[in-house]
Amino acid sequence: MSTIRVRSPASYWLAVPAAVWMLGVVVVPIVLLVWVSFWGGRTFSPASPLTFDNYARFFANQTYIKLAGTTVLHTMTLMAVTGVLGYCIAYFLVMKVKSPAWRLALFLAFIIPFWTSTLIRAIAWVPFLGVNGVINQLLMSIGATRSPIEAFLYSHTGITMAQVSLYTMMAAGPVVYMLSSIAPQLREAAMTLKATPFTVFRRITFPLTLPGVVIGQVLVFLNVMSDFATVATIGGNKHALLSNLVLLFYESSQIRAASVVAVLLMICMLVGVVIALRVVDVRRLGAER
């Protein structure tokens, strides 16, 4: 039993280390970023006048607007694919794998690749997707295609394939948790009330896992929006999304333009998360159980 009460001085003091850390690595950099994005004038210094010029320049460029559109569309595609795939995997793990040992083994098999960094996993896709890559060799050896398919590597399809593999478990994880917290009696009760298995899924299982689905979608959304590494390695120089634009501007020392894109990217993410929280009140998760 904790003897520290909510809102007591002790509870505030305990929050200080975390608060200082968050202030230093999250709040201050974001404030700086937003500040820099408004810097006008010719010199890059805190003395610059604050203007909307940088934003105006971004929105005046059709290429950037299109890029933003592509980014959103690409992210939505990934959310849809990983959502469906992740739910299927979660459902299989929780409902169909009866033995706890097997469930753990399969879950680990899905999870262990996540012990390496996103960058490494993205690069690992290159030998698979290339013209002489594993997938093409396989397709040619079984006679599915005569000449190698070039569309895999350095293409939008390739990026999508790699990211689906990278982020499906993010969509599946929360669903696994929500699914396994549903008491089996609930589904049984529905069945004794004459609900067929499909109806049980539609009326009981799915609504009860919806918070998990939404959390998974938020995770995928945030990660895909900010993933420049996969796009850069798999897409080569031919493809870019908003996050790559940040890198591009940064590398060419256009710090103000980079911060504009970064701020816009953050706004997109915030809007996405707010919408998600509208659908499901994540804070009340499990409160009804």
Partner: peptide
């Protein structure tokens, strides 16, 4: 779902 029965569960199994 094809049987002419209903069931009451030990912990009532109400849909939350």
């Amino acid at each position: 779902w094809q049987r002419d029965i209903a069931m009451m569960f030990q912990d009532f199994a109400l849909f939350p």
